[in-house]
Computed example of a mutant assay.
Amino acid sequence: MAYKSSDALDLVAFFDDLVRCETRVYNALSDRLRAEHSIVTSQFESLRHLRDHPGARVADIAAAFAIGIGATSKGVDRLEKRGWVVRQPNPDDRRSSLLALTDEGARLVDAAERTATACLAELIGEAFGGAPATVRAFADLRAALERARIGTPTG
């Protein structure tokens, strides 16, 4: 991380580090998940969300990941085609469906989570292992951004 001459934090440099680290970790995790489970990180995240939030809608996934509903729906379509997710009628809203993992999807996400945990331990565990305050700081930043609905797609 870079510092300005006054020792003030250079937030633009921090942003650059943050984004590049996220991209590299995300891509490395995708590579591992693809090799071991034939899925990518975005699919793993959606499957994990559905496991942890049964009966979620496409809009719920989109909101959770701060991504567009159209892209989310296409991603769910791909999961459905692979037999990992099913759409069920929403008794409260005929315009939307409730999503559920199939048994195969549940087995896949559990196996992929073990792989993801091991991969992330290798990639960032050492860097953050001795710094739980850093992990908490990121959780706090995310919570603040989500509470203020900052960075939420408009479309």
Rank of each mutant, 00 (worst) to 15 (best):
M1A: 09
A2N: 14
A2Q: 11
Y3T: 11
Y3H: 13
Y3E: 14
D7K: 06
D7Y: 12
A8K: 13
A8M: 10
L11N: 05
L11V: 09
V12Q: 11
V12D: 15
A13M: 02
F14W: 14
D17L: 14
D17P: 01
V19E: 11
V19A: 07
E22H: 15
Y26M: 00
N27L: 15
A28H: 03
L29G: 12
L29K: 05
L29W: 07
D31P: 03
D31I: 01
D31C: 07
L33W: 04
L33S: 03
A35Q: 15
E36S: 14
H37E: 10
S38Q: 11
T41W: 03
Q43L: 00
E45R: 10
S46V: 00
L47H: 05
L47W: 06
L47E: 08
R51A: 09
R51M: 06
P54N: 08
G55Q: 06
A56N: 06
R57G: 00
D60C: 06
A64R: 11
F65K: 13
A66R: 12
I69E: 11
I69D: 08
A71Y: 14
V76I: 15
R78D: 14
K81L: 12
R82Y: 09
G83R: 07
G83N: 05
V86K: 13
R87S: 01
Q88D: 04
Q88I: 12
P89E: 07
N90S: 12
N90A: 04
D93L: 01
D93P: 01
D93F: 01
R94L: 04
R94F: 02
R95H: 12
S97C: 07
S97F: 13
L98D: 03
L98Y: 03
L99S: 10
A100H: 13
T102E: 05
T102A: 07
D103F: 08
D103W: 10
E104T: 08
E104I: 02
G105W: 07
G105N: 08
G105A: 04
R107G: 04
R107E: 09
L108S: 00
V109D: 02
V109R: 05
D110E: 14
R114V: 13
T117S: 09
A118P: 00
C119P: 00
E122F: 04
E122A: 11
E122I: 00
L123K: 10
L123V: 09
I124P: 01
I124K: 03
G125R: 02
A127L: 15
F128T: 09
G129M: 02
G129I: 00
G129A: 04
A131D: 11
A131Q: 12
P132W: 02
P132T: 02
P132V: 00
R136P: 02
R136N: 06
F138T: 11
A139T: 03
L141W: 11
R142Y: 11
R142L: 11
A143Q: 12
A144R: 10
A144W: 02
A144Q: 09
L145D: 00
L145N: 01
A148D: 13
R149M: 05
R149G: 07
R149N: 14
R149Y: 05
I150L: 12
G151V: 06
P153K: 09
T154Q: 15
T154R: 15
T154A: 09
